[in-house]
Amino acid sequence: MNSSVAGEVPAAPSSEKSGRSISRLIRRVHMFTGLFLAPWMLMYALSTLVMTHSDFVFSFYSSKSPTMVTERELDYTRSFPTNVTREQIGQQILQDVGLDGTHYVSGGKDGKPVVVNRQHALVAQRITFDASKSKVVIEREEFRTPTFLERLHRRRGYNHPYALEDTWGFTVDVAVVTMVFWSLSGVWLWWELKTTRGWGTLSLTAGVVLFAIFALLL
């Protein structure tokens, strides 16, 4: 109904009007959230394809893991008391070299170097502190699209004490809750289109039955 001629036609009952406005709202939310979250959905779809076909994808590369390229080598004279954990050492090194952010620490036992794996969405970095040589070596991972996609897919957020990590976690939460909304609102929107009910019922039933069979048998 065109709003400019709304006054010339008999007024619809109020329940019908509110039904239409709810339907219009759902349609708009379905569309605008879809447009906003399109990059997340593309990333999840492409990264899943990369992960399920990893043998094929990595056959285009000379090695399965990307090579590490040395960025910088620094003299590092700070000494740490023996009661300090390797996590605290890692945190301090990152702050000293100006790379504070999401990371995990390995090594550091029996005189072995402390290795700080600094996570980045684009290229990960590895910071190695060898106390016996008073040296810090900063390496970065060679960029590979499949590795980048897989890393983004696996990043959940919330696990580290950094605001950016929580922001990413929040966007992932929004994306997954919206996926549930799209599923349910899509069924609602389809049901309103009377001409598509036949084929729509067939599509929905085929999907639900197939999924149920797999859920029970696999």
Partner: peptide, 14 residues
Amino acid sequence: YMGLFLMPWLLMYG
């Protein structure tokens, strides 16, 4: 139609 067919998978992934 693709949305209706794949709805259970989208719901499951969400």
